[in-house]
Design a protein around this nucleic acid. Structure first.
Length: 651
DNA sequence: AGCACGCCGACT
DNA sequence: GTCGGCGTGCTC
C-alpha cells in the first residue's frame, strides 16, 4: 500500500511513501503523517492512497501517523469545498493544521477548560420559542439535514434558544459548532455561554484570538471524540469532528462570514454544505435575515420560524426626517427633531446612540478654487481628514498633514465635505457642553483597552452620548438607551452594489434595535438626504414585507438570489498590463460561454480599483447554475496571465 | 525550504 | 591545487 502526501512546508509537488504493515489504513486520507525526506523527518498530509507502486524510483516508508478524528464525511466535505472555491483541497487542511501543530508547549498546569459552571435557573421559554425547540430537538437526535431560519426581532431571546439546543445536543454526546460574524462577537458569546450554560460542557473558542494551549486541548478533545462546543468565525467549520450534531449560525445576514482575502471562503456556505453532508440540522438566526436565506425558505423548503415578541421593553417609535429640507439650521447635520430629542434624554438622564458610518473628521477635502480633491497616492480613494489635521487613507493607512496650499493651484482655501465621527463629536460638544460624549469606531478600536473602557462606561451609564460606526451595532446590550440617531441613513444606499438596499436596511434595523430594550418611550431618528422605499420597512415586523418587493426587483435585473453570481478578480501592479489582460480574459471566457445559460459582465473597474499600488479589475458571470460558472473558471489557463486571478463563487 | 552538488574565479 | 561563493535542481 502506498500513499501520496503533500508536505506541510517546502516541497510543492506530491511525494510517495510506503505504508508500514502495522498501520490502520482506515481513515488515512487527509491524515497527518511524518515522513523521511533526505535526512530529515517532516510533517505531511495524505492526499491519495494506492495499491500500485507509483514510479520506478525507490520509495521510503512513512514514519509515523498523527492522531486524526474519524470524521466519515470530512473528505467529501473538503473535496466539495475545494471544487466550489477552486482551491486545492490541501489549502483547507493546512489552515487548521497551522493552528494545531504549533510548537509543542510543555505545560502541565493545563487545567481543563470545561469549568464547573454555576447552575443558572433555567429561563422559561415563550410559546414562540418552545415551538422551535419542539421542532428541532428531535432532528438533532435523529440526525437529519434540516436548515432552519429563525427570524427573531432584536431582543427576542435568540440566545436562550441557542443555549437550549447546545445543551440538548451535548447531552446526546454530539458536538456543536457556533459561528458568529466577527472575532469580538465570538469572544463575547464565549464568555456569556461559559457563565450561563447550565450543564458542565467543554466549550472552546477557535479563532485568531485563541491561544495555543486552548487550541491543543481542543484538538485533543476532538481526536478523542469527546463532545465539544466550538465558537468561532471561519476556522471551526474546517475542523474534522466525528460526532458533529448541530451547527448554529448567528447574525446569519452578515457579510463577516466571507473571508476578506482570497480565497474568499464564506463559512456560512461552507457550514450549509457540511450540515448537508453530515446530515445534521443547521440553524440560521438573525433579526434581519438575508434575502438569500428567505429565498431558500420559499424555494427550497428551509424551515422558518419567527420570534415577534421582545423579551422586555417595547419597540421604539421611528421617525424619518429629511436632512436637505433647505431650512437654515445652525448645525446642518443635526435636525431640530434630533436636537430636541437629545436634549430631552439629557435632562431625563437617559442615553443616546448616534450612528454614522464614516470614520474621521470629514469625508474628503476639496480646493475651493480648482476642485482638486486630495487622494491617496497608493490607492484610488480620497483621503479622509482627521481632527488632528492629518489626511488619512482608510485603505492603506497612508497619512499626511493637510498642506496649507492646494498642490494644484496654490490657493489656500479648502472645502471640508461630508461629516465623520470625529467632527460629529466636536459638533455635539459645542451644542451640549455639559454632556459626556464618547466616540467608538475603528480609530479607537485599534486600542482595545480604550474601546472596552468606553463600552463599559456606556453600559454603566457614565457616558450620555455614544457616537459610533458599524462596530457599535453588534452584540452589545445597553439598557439605558432610549434614543438612537442615525445621522445619514442613505449614505451607503446608492452604493453601486446590487444588494445596497438590503444591507442598508439590515444595518438600520440592527442599530435601531439598540433602543428600547428596557424602556417604553424610545425613539429612533433616521436622518436622510433623499427619500427611498426602504425607509417604509424600518419597522422590524415589516422587514419580511421588504423581501417580497426586493425579490421582484432582483428577479427583474437577474441578480442573486434569483441568479447565481460569480466574480473573477485580477490583480497586478502595472496598470497597462492589467487592462490588457482583463480584456483578454473576458474574451477568452466569452468564447467559451453558452450565451443562453451564462452572461458575462466586464471587465469592469471596481469603485476602488487601486489599493496599496496594486491595480484591480473585475469580471462577473451570471447564471442560474453555479456549476457552469465554476467549470468555466476551471477552463481558463491562469498560467497564461501575469496578473493574479481569483475566483469568488458568491461575492 | 534546505541541502548537496558543481562550476568558476581568486588566491596561495 | 584548494578554498569558498553562489546558482541550480532534487527531495519519494
Amino acid at each position: 500500500m502506498y500513499i501520496q502526501v503533500r508536505l506541510l512546508k517546502s516541497v510543492q509537488d506530491p511525494l510517495w511513501y510506503r505504508v508500514p504493515a502495522d498501520w490502520n489504513t482506515k481513515n488515512l486520507l487527509g491524515a497527518a503523517v511524518n515522513v523521511p525526506l533526505r535526512n530529515q523527518i517532516v510533517p505531511a498530509l495524505v492526499e491519495k492512497i494506492s495499491d500500485q507502486k507509483p514510479g520506478s524510483y525507490k520509495i521510503k516508508y512513512a514514519q509515523s501517523k498523527e492522531p486524526f478524528p474519524h470524521d466519515v464525511s470530512y473528505n467529501e466535505f473538503i473535496k466539495k469545498l475545494a471544487y466550489y472555491y477552486q482551491e486545492p483541497p490541501l489549502h483547507f487542511i493546512k489552515r487548521i493544521r497551522q493552528f494545531i501543530v504549533q510548537k509543542e508547549v510543555k505545560s502541565h498546569a493545563d487545567k481543563n477548560v470545561s469549568s464547573l459552571n454555576h447552575k443558572k435557573e433555567s429561563v422559561i421559554l415563550t410559546d414562540e420559542q418552545q415551538q422551535i425547540v419542539d421542532f428541532l430537538l428531535p432532528k438533532i437526535t435523529q440526525s437529519i439535514y434540516c436548515p432552519t431560519l429563525v427570524h427573531g426581532v432584536t431582543g427576542s431571546g435568540k440566545t436562550e434558544l441557542y443555549k437550549k439546543f447546545i445543551e440538548y445536543a451535548m447531552k446526546e454526546k454530539r458536538s456543536v459548532i457556533l459561528l458568529l460574524p466577527e472575532v469580538t462577537l465570538a469572544v463575547q458569546f464565549f464568555n456569556k455561554l461559559k457563565q450561563q450554560l447550565s450543564i458542565e460542557i467543554a466549550i472552546f473558542g477557535f479563532h485568531s484570538a485563541t491561544g495555543p494551549k486552548e487550541k491543543r486541548l481542543l484538538w485533543q478533545k476532538i481526536v478523542s471524540a469527546e463532545p465539544v462546543l466550538i465558537i468561532g468565525v471561519h476556522l471551526p467549520i474546517l475542523l474534522p469532528i466525528e460526532n458533529l450534531g448541530l451547527i448554529i449560525i448567528d447574525e446569519e445576514h452578515e457579510m463577516g462570514f466571507q473571508e476578506k482575502k482570497h480565497p474568499k471562503i464564506n463559512s456560512k456556505e461552507a457550514a450549509l454544505l457540511r450540515a448537508q453532508l453530515c446530515e445534521i440540522p443547521i440553524i440560521l438566526g438573525s433579526a434581519t435575515p438575508s434575502l438569500s436565506s428567505l429565498y431558500n425558505v420559499q424555494q427550497r423548503g428551509w424551515h422558518f420560524f419567527q420570534l415577534k415578541k421582545r423579551f422586555a421593553g417595547e419597540f421604539p417609535k421611528i421617525a424619518v426626517v429629511p436632512l436637505n429640507d433647505k431650512k437654515k439650521r445652525k448645525y446642518f447635520w443635526i435636525t431640530d427633531k434630533l436636537k430636541n430629542a437629545i436634549s430631552d434624554r439629557l435632562t431625563k438622564k437617559e442615553q443616546t446612540i448616534l450612528f454614522l458610518n464614516r470614520r474621521g473628521y470629514s469625508f474628503f477635502v476639496q480646493c475651493k478654487q480648482c476642485s482638486f480633491v486630495f487622494s491617496c497616492s497608493h490607492c484610488s480613494v480620497s483621503l479622509t481628514l482627521h481632527c488632528d489635521n492629518r489626511l488619512v487613507c482608510h485603505y492603506c493607512n497612508f497619512a499626511m498633514i493637510l498642506p496649507i496650499k492646494c498642490s494644484d493651484c496654490k490657493q489656500t482655501e479648502f472645502l471640508k465635505k461630508g461629516i465623520g465621527t470625529q467632527q460629529l463629536v466636536m459638533l455635539l460638544q459645542k451644542i451640549y457642553p455639559h454632556a459626556r460624549i464618547e466616540r467608538a469606531d475603528m480609530d479607537t478600536t485599534v486600542n482595545k483597552k480604550h474601546w472596552q473602557q468606553v463600552m463599559h462606561n456606556f453600559e454603566s451609564g457614565t457616558i450620555d452620548i455614544l457616537v459610533g460606526t458599524q462596530t457599535i451595532t453588534k452584540g452589545y446590550h445597553f439598557p439605558g438607551v432610549t434614543l438612537v440617531g442615525i445621522l445619514w441613513a442613505d449614505l451607503n444606499l446608492h452604493f453601486p452594489s446590487y444588494n445596497a438596499a438590503e444591507t442598508t436596511l439590515q444595518q438600520l434595523i440592527q442599530v435601531a434595535g439598540r433602543a428600547g430594550r428596557q424602556h417604553i418611550n424610545s425613539l429612533v431618528v433616521v436622518q436622510t438626504m433623499m427619500d427611498h422605499p426602504v425607509f417604509d420597512y424600518l419597522n422590524e415586523i415589516d422587514y419580511i414585507k421588504f423581501f417580497k418587493k426586493e425579490f421582484a426587483s432582483r428577479k427583474e435585473v437577474k441578480y442573486p438570489p434569483y441568479m447565481r453570481l460569480a466574480e473573477i478578480e485580477l490583480k497586478h501592479q502595472d496598470e497597462s498590463i492589467i487592462a490588457d489582460e482583463a480584456q483578454q480574459l473576458a474574451n477568452e471566457l466569452s468564447a467559451r460561454i453558452n450565451k443562453d445559460a451564462v452572461r458575462l459582465l466586464g471587465p469592469t473597474l471596481p469603485p476602488v480599483h487601486k489599493v496599496k499600488k496594486i491595480y484591480m479589475r473585475k469580471i462577473y458571470l451570471k447564471s442560474k447554475n453555479i456549476h457552469l460558472l465554476i467549470d468555466l473558471f476551471q477552463q481558463i489557463n491562469k498560467k497564461r496571465y501575469k496578473s493574479g486571478i481569483f475566483f469568488t463563487p458568491n461575492p
